[in-house]
């Protein structure tokens, strides 16, 4: 009976150890090796450009539903013109970064784990090593850097589209006064909300890429191993994003209050 928990703890600890070693190797590679511009651009295209549709749809409909829900509540207490302010603050600090990161984790994190996992089971990663190339330099670093650049940009896009969609719904569908709404939105949304979203999305990008790459590089044998790696990459990245979001909100709120 005691063996099972011990094995689970051992597995979790050894997994965390391997993950930490991989992250340390990524940092070492970033400081000592030259990053290939072509590899970075390829990854930016895959992560950034090809995620456009997913991120735009997510941002737009999140903004729209948030606007409608907020309006229905605020209308009861005659606070209609505060609706867009709530949408704006929520989209910048919480919903924009978190929902964008979750969507990118589903699309990009899974893809990274599947690509690298397949390379592992078909000995392509061993082949890389025999060709005097460190898999971290060639496979992981471009993906991590590209994701940490792309996710903040996608988040900015998602926030902008979400607020625009909320404005259209609020003003044209729900008949909220546009002038007061815009004034309130600007009054209650400041640069700290935007900065918080930017910092969070940067960290979430790192979580998505390192989790996806780690699961791919350390995946089990065969199609089953690749399948597990892909699923775990998405699940673990999503959980890590949601948990870290809570702590980041607490930490960043205090830190940004000093600015």
């Amino acid at each position: 009976m005691t063996e099972v928990p011990t094995n689970v703890i051992q597995r979790v600890l050894s997994g965390l150890g391997r993950f930490s070693l991989m992250v340390a190797e990524v940092l070492r590679s970033l400081t000592t090796q030259r990053l290939s511009g072509r590899d970075l651009v390829d990854q930016l295209h895959f992560i950034g450009v090809k995620s456009q549709m997913v991120v735009l749809v997510t941002g737009a409909f999140t903004g729209m539903v948030l606007c409608a829900q907020t309006y229905f509540q605020f209308h009861k207490v005659k606070m209609d013109t505060a609706t867009l302010a709530v949408v704006s603050v929520s989209m910048c600090g919480e919903l924009g970064p978190v929902l964008t990161a979750l969507m990118v984790a589903g699309r990009v994190g899974a893809s990274m784990a599947a690509q690298l996992g397949t390379m592992r089971v078909t000995e392509q990663i061993d082949a890389l090593r025999t060709l005097a190339t460190h898999p971290i330099d060639y496979l992981v670093v471009p993906r991590v850097v590209a994701t940490m650049i792309a996710v903040p940009l996608l988040t900015a896009e998602s926030i902008a589209v979400g607020i625009l969609a909320a404005y259209l719904v609020g003003v044209h569908l729900l008949q909220i006064d546009p002038g007061y709404s815009l004034v309130n939105m600007q009054r209650f949304t400041d640069h700290r909300d935007v900065l918080m979203g930017f910092i969070k999305s940067f960290i979430f990008g790192g979580i998505i890429a390192t989790t996806g790459c780690y699961k791919g590089i350390h995946c089990g044998q065969g199609a089953e191993g690749v399948g597990h790696a892909t699923t775990e990459a998405v699940v673990y990245a999503s959980i890590a994003i949601l948990i870290s979001n809570f702590f980041l909100t607490l930490l960043l709120t205090r830190l940004l209050a000093l600015i």
Partner: peptide, 11 residues
Amino acid sequence: GMLFQSAALFD
């Protein structure tokens, strides 16, 4: 230099 059983070409 190494030739793998499956050739292990980068697909």
